[in-house]
Design a binder for these strands. Structure first.
Lengths: 289, 289
DNA sequence: CCCAATCTCTGACTAAAGTCAGAGAAATCG
DNA sequence: CGATTTCTCTGACTTTAGTCAGAGATTGGG
């Protein structure tokens, strides 16, 4: 299995990596081309560029200067915060970007071209699979404070979704509360999964001393479903519960959340009698770790 | 479709490419690491390195010198031809190679690690597909002289395989001849498919003026089967026949070669009466272009 | 045996990529 | 309001990567 992955890495870095460099190379150095491309149509804050391309600030600054003297971008102070600077493509920069786009298309075509119809279909299907599954591996699940910006984003989305899916809608005030204080150490934990700097899933634990820990706020962004993130969240939270000395984790859920229920069952959770009076609860589960 | 390929290129070069560089980086520059790796356990001629890594001879020479002063390889004149030099790893070089190996494994593991069992299986299957199909796109089919080294290699392998597969074995002298002179322009053509500098398939045409052209010596290396090379050879040779003014291509084949027969049929060849007295022939096919 | 071809090496470059330490402007926190 | 932090830039570097033109050894073909 490892061998197969290595063979893939080898073949792909050689073929795609090298060609990508080759195709993307205009008369401009690769670094600059990449920056120009990353800036995109609408421009981009310099600090975002820096984090996305993982470049040294001095180096990036110089690359931008070079693009600027070539008349491809304009860097100006950002509207809100005048410390941060925003790079925007000029008309010429846009044209050059479009050229890179066309080259990228040409590369893609050159990869399909020698193949027969059915081979192409297979290749594209396999590529989509690989891309999706590798994307899944990029998600990092980290503990954050429940009041953290990303955590709050997740919760907002989560409540909106519950409201849409529950037969009777969902009002957080009618539900049993889970205050930030209950979901931050030492009373509990809140974890968020991040992908490309955006939050894509979350989950929380409330500890109750020797009593079972409670699983709360499990949510995966619609765009990130099918990547196995629910299960990863569960595993992660169970690990944290166990580290905290909990032998049992339990949770309640609503009948509308069929995928979640299926996941709990297949992860070893067993349905038990209601252990609280959550008004939106239809099923109660627990798992001995 | 193009979009999917581009998405793949982007996601994968970023993820694999960057990590590959990162994991492979010891304290040694990447270029050197790649050369060391390519030399392998058993050593490797310098010219082979040069062609495989597509490096400038001066540059490679310097890289080798640097590896040599680091005590990782020894470069010495090759046994047969003392112009060519062979690089061999020292014990220390082998250790460093093993380290690279372990890192490469670690990278592969890190890609699988966040996934569930079934996701891993899917990922590995998809990777194998992608790798195989991308490998197929790397094969270049070019005309060569039938006495060319690579052409002769192919023919040798081809005859060996026929001898193994035919019920009564195969002796080229008993078969209808196809002299080099008959398979080089203007009397005919010989094409070889190359992958990573190695010949992996071949095929030939004999022209007979206004009479149908004859397809001969179609062979695909066992390791390269399933890449659609047979069909590509066929397409290529038919194109050349058509360019030469031939309206019809024909061929004979042996009943043991079932995949070949299936391919001919599905490529539009129809079985016809024997048009020659090839002793090893069981089926005769032709196709109107 | 000689001439042309092959193979590797050296010298002399250039360009790209990247690092590091700090300076200076603007925002934020107490 | 002042200290601290954030963000970007400049200057002064180093390291990699790569190119190009020969030189010098061998070898193979006639």
């Amino acid at each position: 299995m490892i061998d197969r992955v290595r063979a893939f890495n080898r073949a792909v870095t050689q073929r795609v990596g090298a060609l990508d460099d080759h195709y993307l190379s205009t008369d401009r150095p690769l670094g600059e081309a990449r920056v120009l491309w990353e800036i995109g149509e609408d421009g981009c804050d310099v600090r975002v560029l820096r984090s996305r391309l993982a470049l040294d600030s001095g180096y990036l600054s110089r690359l931008l200067r070079s693009l600027e003297t070539a008349g491809l971008v304009k860097v100006a102070a950002s509207a809100g915060d005048r410390r941060v600077r925003t790079a925007r493509p000029t008309a010429k920069g846009r044209r050059e970007c479009a050229l890179l786009d066309r080259r990228s298309d040409a590369l893609a075509r050159s990869m399909l071209e020698p193949l027969t119809e059915s081979q192409r279909d297979r290749l594209v299907a396999a590529m989509s699979d690989v891309e999706r599954l590798l994307t899944a591996t990029l998600v990092t699940i980290e503990p954050v404070d429940p009041t953290d910006h990303h955590a709050q984003d997740c919760l907002r989305e989560y409540f909106t979704e519950l409201d849409r899916r529950f037969d009777a809608g969902f009002d957080p005030r009618a539900s049993l509360p889970a205050d930030p204080a209950e979901m931050r150490p030492p009373a509990g934990t809140f974890v968020v999964g991040m992908l490309h700097g955006e939050p894509v899933c979350c989950g929380a634990l409330k500890f109750h001393g020797d009593e079972p820990a409670e699983l709360k706020r499990m949510w995966v962004a619609p765009a990130a479903r099918g990547l196995g993130l629910g299960r990863r969240l569960l595993t992660e939270l169970e690990r944290r519960a166990a580290d905290n000395g909990c032998g049992v984790v339990r949770l309640e859920t609503n009948r509308s959340l069929v995928e979640a229920i299926a996941m709990y069952r297949s992860s070893g959770y067993r349905e038990v009698a209601a252990f609280n009076d959550e008004p939106y609860g239809d099923h109660w589960f627990e798992k001995h770790l």
